[in-house]
Nucleic acid binder design. Structure first.
Lengths: 151, 151
DNA sequence: ATCGAACAGTTCAACTGTTGAACTATTAAT
DNA sequence: ATTAATAGTTCAACAGTTGAACTGTTCGAT
């Protein structure tokens, strides 16, 4: 790629990534804040999609310390949205899963978010948005690979 | 767009947007956390790019309450990175600008971030990344329009 | 078989960022 | 002139985060 353009592309990318992220977070918050914070929703989403996981899994996925996860899980646990189950074979491990109440609340908020996202992306031609998501997923893979190189 | 695909696109979009954002934030933090938090950097960036602005401008741009901006600005002010100047015509208004020290620190951290972003996007063919950023900017405009409809 | 290292998770203090209400100071409106 | 509105700050309360210290458990090398 010629150097003449790459700085401009980098700056455009930084600006648009920042702006879209801020606005998307703000729309999601508007939609769900009466029920959950955004981070609480993302936590429920991860556990729901994977079925059951540990604090360490979440810490790795969200790239934060385990103690940050403990704090989030404690709040969800106190509200009866998450259950903790000790592994009987390795008693250090605690499995996290959604309670029925947690699952119900998650599905409700996730549906609102999906409707929101659909209202945005349905403005595009299917081919354009598919190409966009394909490139976005490639970028994600590049980030994952770079992360693993660090370890 | 046919309904059969749109749910899948929505889910892929939600997943990849979340994952890229988390990882990007984490890389940036790794790069600059010895000097600034990410939010502090974004604050300096906005003020630097626009030259001079008010707390209210920042609150609108970042979609948070003005008191959240006061807290961030206080920390940057105490470190001598930002200066406050009262408007002599309308003495309610306070203009924020970077001090030389603030500008120097900002340029240093911004360069590190630009190098990071460049290392990611230079993996792509120029045409693909340009198309990606074009669509991303369209999406940004859709979010801006939707935001304005709410007001 | 034991004992020290490694691991999973928690607790705690300290910090950043956020909200929303109450407040100060100033300007605008009628 | 009095009332409204505006710009910004302060404060208490909360969510999220870090990093160190801790508990309890398992693994591994001798």
């Amino acid at each position: 790629m010629p150097d003449s353009n790459i700085n401009e592309l980098v700056n455009r990318f930084i600006a648009v990534q920042f702006s879209v992220t801020k606005k998307a977070e703000s729309f999601i918050k508007e939609e769900i804040s009466s029920d959950l914070t955004n981070d609480q929703h993302y936590t429920l989403r991860y556990i729901h999609n994977i079925g059951s996981c540990t604090s360490s899994d979440l810490a790795e996925e969200f790239e934060v310390n385990k103690s940050a996860i403990t704090a989030i899980i404690n709040r969800l646990f106190e509200r009866g949205l998450i259950q903790r189950t000790r592994d009987e074979k390795d008693r250090r491990v605690v499995y996290l899963a959604l309670t029925p109440k947690g699952k119900e609340l998650f599905l409700k908020t996730e549906e609102r978010i999906a409707n929101l996202v659909e209202s945005f992306i349905s403005s595009f031609e299917q081919e354009e948005i598919e190409q966009f998501i394909n490139t976005y997923e490639k970028l994600n893979q590049i980030l994952i690979d770079k992360k693993q190189l660090e370890e």
